[in-house]
Nucleic acid binder design. Structure first.
Length: 251
DNA sequence: AATATTTACAACCGCATGCTG
DNA sequence: TCAGCATGCGGTTGTAAATAT
């Protein structure tokens, strides 16, 4: 498979986006959508590569993105999903409506890893020793807890911080497969907000195998009110301002 | 108040994968 | 079947803001 060069670097702007650039991108996508990211910057009058535009849109400008601090429930969900899925950020993001894989990845590296190690450090040394001895075993048991013993032979392997190695060695499913299934699972849930449906709409809604459906349905149990709670507002041209996109600084 | 360090997060990079002709 | 292209994904970096000294 050939791989095209990322983009023509010459003359293209890089680094932080200005408000004017954001406006151009938002206006263009609102009017025309984004059928072709590579052609988009030229058509929108932007001196950016398509990749940069796509990233800016999907991670920051998309109206259904939930900005602001993560709730404890969201953080717990991420931790739980990470135990099950490893660094499959997009798969995890699919279970967190309004959150992007990039955002989740960031919060994992900056906050949640520490949160976990802190909580582990509070364990007694004996406990820690036990834990370390049973790490791999407990991972499987953890999966069993979610899936039930009758499903413990699922063709999925757990990953912790060394997830990359594990996934490279043994992960039998591609991310897209898992994401598709996850999306389908999300669709089937009665507690999902419209923003999630939108977020998941890019994937093909194929029906997962019953066992996979079961697995996904049991990845996390989240209170209905949690997802239906409105924690973000949509963004359009008229209400775009610096404050809308500066929520991250409110921490 | 000045400087150093840490934190948070936007953005970039390169590889993987799917689609199309 | 294969090559080229477009897009998705995860790892990593750069830097502004916050906090500590």
């Amino acid at each position: 498979m050939g791989r095209s060069p990322c983009c023509e670097k010459l003359g293209l702007k890089r680094g932080p986006w200005s408000k004017e650039e954001d406006d151009l991108l938002i206006n263009y996508i609102n009017k025309n959508g984004h059928p072709n990211w590579r052609a988009l910057p030229k058509l929108a009058g932007l001196l950016r590569c398509g990749k940069s535009c796509r990233l800016r849109w999907t991670n920051y400008l998309k109206p259904d993105i939930k900005r602001g601090n993560f709730t404890n429930e969201e953080e717990d969900t991420i931790i739980e999903l990470h135990q099950l899925l490893g660094n499959r950020w997009s798969t995890i993001a699919a279970r967190l409506p309004g959150r992007t894989d990039n955002e989740i990845k960031n919060i994992w590296h900056t906050r949640l890893k520490k949160k976990i190690s802190k909580s582990q450090a509070q364990k007694t040394p004996e406990l820690q020793e036990e834990t370390s001895m049973e790490t791999s075993k407990s991972d499987e048991q953890n999966l069993d807890t979610h899936l039930g013993p009758e499903n413990s032979n699922f063709d999925i392997h757990l990953e912790s911080d060394n997830s990359k190695d594990n996934s490279e060695i043994s992960s039998p499913k591609t991310n897209s497969e898992i994401q598709q299934q996850s999306s389908s699972s999300v669709h089937s849930s009665s507690s999902i907000s419209s923003s999630c449906e939108d977020a998941c709409s890019n994937t093909t809604a194929t029906s997962p195998e019953p066992r996979d459906q079961f697995m996904l349905d049991n990845l996390v149990e989240i209170d209905d009110d949690f997802w239906s709670e409105v924690l973000w507002t949509t963004v359009d041209d008229s209400n775009y301002n610096d404050n809308n996109f500066d929520l991250s600084k409110n921490n």
